[in-house]
Amino acid sequence: MKNAKGKGAVKVSKEALKPVDDRKVGKRKAPSKPDKGSAPKAKKEKKAKKDPNKPKRPPSAFFVFLEEFRQTFKAENPNVKAVSAVGKAGGEKWKSLSSAEKAPYEAKAAKRKAEYEKLMKAYDKKQASSADDDESDKSKSEVNDEDDEASAEDHQEEEEEEDDEDEEDEDDD
C-alpha cells in the first residue's frame, strides 16, 4: 500500500470543513473575551507615590553583618566580581556563626531600629500636621467666598421656588 501523501490522497467533503457547532458535539468552549476596543477598560488603581522624605527601614542583623563581610570577602577574593557569589558566601558564613558571634550584629541592628522608630514617630507627626495644613491652605477669604457662593445659589433657588408657587396661585384664581 502507498502512503496517503500527496494531492489526491484524502478527499475531504465540504461539510467536514464547516465549523462544528460545539453544543452538538458536547465540547466545552472557553468564554469569549470581549474585544479590546468595544468594552471600556477598567481603571487600574494607582499606587500611592512613595514619599522621598520617609525614613528608610533599618537593615536586619544579617545585612549589618554583610556590610563588614563584603569588605573582607573582596579583600580575600579580588577577582570575584559577582554579587551573588558574595551573597552566597555571606549566607553560608552567617549560618555557621554561633549566637554569641551574631550578638554584636544584632545589637547594631537593634540600635538602628530604635533610631528608625524615633525618625518614624517624627515623620508621622509631621504628616499628621501637614494633613491639617492642607485644609487651611486656602485663605479665609477664599473659604468665605465659597460659602457666599453656596449661600447665594441656595437663596436663588429658594426665590425661584417661591416665584413658581406664586405663578401657580395666580393660575388657580
Rank of each mutant, 00 (worst) to 15 (best):
D173Y: 13
R57V: 02
P78I: 08
A30M: 09
K27I: 11
D166Y: 03
A16H: 05
S96D: 10
K5E: 12
S98F: 11
E161R: 11
T72P: 03
A131N: 08
S96M: 10
F73Y: 06
E146K: 13
G87F: 06
K54F: 02
V83M: 06
E168H: 08
V25I: 10
D154G: 01
S141K: 15
L17C: 09
V83F: 07
E167N: 09
K118P: 05
A4N: 15
A9S: 09
W94G: 02
Y123V: 07
K54G: 08
E160V: 01
A75R: 07
K47Q: 12
K93F: 01
K11C: 13
N53T: 10
K88I: 04
K81I: 02
E146A: 08
G87R: 06
E162G: 08
R57S: 05
P78E: 02
K11E: 14
V80S: 08
E165G: 02
D171C: 07
L17S: 01
K140G: 10
D171M: 13
A100H: 14
K33Y: 09
E15K: 00
P104L: 05
K43Q: 06
S84T: 11
E170Q: 01
D21Y: 03
K88N: 11
P78R: 12
K47T: 05
S130A: 12
K125Y: 08
D51K: 04
K11Y: 11
V86I: 06
S84A: 14
D145S: 12
K93R: 09
E170I: 13
S60H: 04
A100I: 11
K2T: 11
A131P: 10
P52G: 02
K113W: 03
V25D: 00
E142F: 01
M1D: 08
Q127M: 09
D21L: 00
S136V: 14
G26A: 01
A42N: 12
A131L: 03
K27L: 08
Y123E: 03
K29W: 05
K121F: 09
S60F: 07
E117F: 04
P104C: 05
F65P: 01
F65K: 01
F63A: 00
S99E: 14
E76C: 13
L17D: 03
D35T: 04
Y105H: 02
E158V: 14
R112G: 04
A131D: 01
E142G: 02
K56L: 12
S32T: 00
S13D: 11
S151M: 13
